[in-house]
Design a protein around this nucleic acid. Structure first.
Length: 426
RNA sequence: GGGGGGAUACCAGAGCGGUCAAAUGGGGCAGACUGUAAAUCUGUUGGCUAAGCCUUCGGAGGUUCGAAUCCUCCUCCCCCCA
């Protein structure tokens, strides 16, 4: 075995918990292990990244990864970590979500090796023909209510209430594990630390039903150093789908990581070796201003999730947007110019409005919806937070005319330092 | 069952008849510095077409020229004694 999977997770700060004997098992033989993905959206997001990477690390350590799509479990809803009953997803949405996630997983996982090539399964395939009576007799009989009630996901909800549907969730997931154990000799289930309860239910089921051996391993929840939730920005979730979060935004997410977090993230989210990371961290410490770690992170992940081409584009865009002046923009040809503003919100403006000049406020609020009200736009301008074509707007009374158009048709609007908008005059 | 204390803007929390769109802190947003980081400092933080106007202090009524502030009832929370 090239690397010890458990040790690797440990030094990367990813290991949360595992059942006794897990490490020994992995050292002894090639193991099939699975992680389930919950189809709550049509794209995976940055939070799922840990699990995808875990599967890949697992594979690199010489084992066989299985990714499970929750076509059946998604119909029920996992109560883990939820404080209230969830709404059920309708079938059309669920189908769309499954298809979306499937495509992404196919892209990230490596299916080539005959022995350790990844597999993708959907638990709907074995649940769809299963009747309630059968299920209750085959699965439900093996776990006691008190055992199920002892799980945190259930215990935390006893006060506020929980439907039988969500209570049963752990049985479904347990049955998944059991099925994979039977059909694919899958002895290990992995997941985020919130999945511990569900995973152990599965291991328990395998033991009771077959006297079989099954193991569990969970990874650390990714946290930011300030305690806030990882993976969200002001604008929302960071998705892995480039139509939902552009590669540029994705790149920016990592570039904006704080120094403290970057040290941990480089370990958690890249495949760089311990030596490489130590060297980088030391170098970063010498001159934090260079932000070596953030750059490495952004590069590794943008390349991994999107492509090297996307990374280059994001890098170039960032360079121009953050360091360039107006002259940089003027130098670009139109195609490149538009490429840079890919993923930036755009507004069309009719030329006639600019003919006699237009107040900035009117431009920002009525002709575009960059601000919801003139009051807000006014406040931002007075606070010095608004620029047109890289030039700070000094007064809310400013008039915008033809002379503001770059290349005869564009006006670049900047709200704060990082929020760009592009007006296209036609 | 008895006694007491509360409910204020995103959160915490002052105000206790006019000077209250409501102190202060946190959070958010923006600016300066820097490194697209952190820390620090500054501004801003109910809404509006910014003169001013409109809607807010648990809910419903009332007293008053005037109520977040006083009275009555209701709802909900907390504490203490049974």
């Amino acid at each position: 075995m090239e690397t010890d999977f458990v040790e690797e997770l440990r030094w990367r700060g990813l290991l949360h918990d595992m059942m006794p004997g897990t490490q020994e098992l992995l050292q002894k033989e090639v193991v099939a292990g699975y992680i389930g993905f919950d189809p709550t959206a049509d794209s995976l997001h940055i939070g799922s990244l840990t699990q995808i990477l875990t599967l890949l690390r697992f594979q690199k350590a010489g084992h066989k990864p299985i990714a499970l799509l929750g076509g059946a479990t998604g119909m029920v809803g996992d109560p883990s970590g939820k404080s209230a009953e969830r709404n059920l997803l309708d079938e059309a949405t669920l189908y769309k979500n499954i298809e979306g996630q499937k495509k992404q997983l196919e892209k990230f996982l490596d299916f080539s090796d005959p022995k350790t090539g990844a597999e993708l399964v959907n638990n709907y395939d074995w649940m769809k023909g299963y009747s309630f009576i059968e299920f209750i007799r085959d699965v439900g009989k093996h776990l006691t209510v008190s055992y199920m009630m002892a799980k945190d996901s259930v215990k935390n909800r006893l006060e506020t209430g929980m439907s039988f549907t969500e209570f049963s969730y752990q049985l479904l997931q347990a049955f998944d594990f059991y099925t994979l154990y039977k059909t694919k000799n899958c002895k290990l289930q992995m997941g985020g630390s919130d999945q511990w309860g569900n995973i152990t239910s599965g291991a328990e089921l395998i033991r009771r039903k077959n006297g079989g051996e099954a193991y569990a391993l969970t990874t650390q929840l990714v946290r930011k150093s300030d305690g806030s939730k990882f993976g969200k920005t002001e604008t929302g979730t960071v998705w892995l789908d480039k139509t939902k979060t552009s590669p540029y935004q994705f790149y920016q997410f990592w570039i904006n990581t704080t120094d403290e977090d970057a040290k941990n993230y480089v370990k958690m989210f890249t495949f760089l070796t311990k030596q490489e990371i130590e060297a980088l961290t030391a170098e970063h410490g010498k001159d934090p201003g260079k932000r070596i770690l953030q750059r490495v992170l952004a590069k590794e992940l943008t390349c991994f999730v999107h492509s090297e081409e996307d990374y280059r584009a994001a890098l170039e865009t960032s360079g121009i947007l953050f360091n360039g002046g107006l002259s940089e923009f003027l130098k670009l040809n139109e195609a490149t110019f538009l490429e840079i503003f890919e993923g930036v919100q755009k507004f069309d403006i009719q030329k006639k409005y600019l003919e006699n000049g237009i107040g900035v406020l009117e431009l920002l609020v009525e002709r575009t919806s960059i601000f919801p009200s003139k009051s807000e736009a006014r406040k931002m301008i007075i606070g010095g937070g608004l620029s047109l074509n890289k030039q700070k707007v000094e007064t809310p009374d400013m008039i915008v005319g033809y002379d503001f158009m770059i290349k005869n048709k564009y006006i670049i609007v900047q709200k704060g330092k990082k929020n760009y908008y592009l007006c296209i005059v036609s």
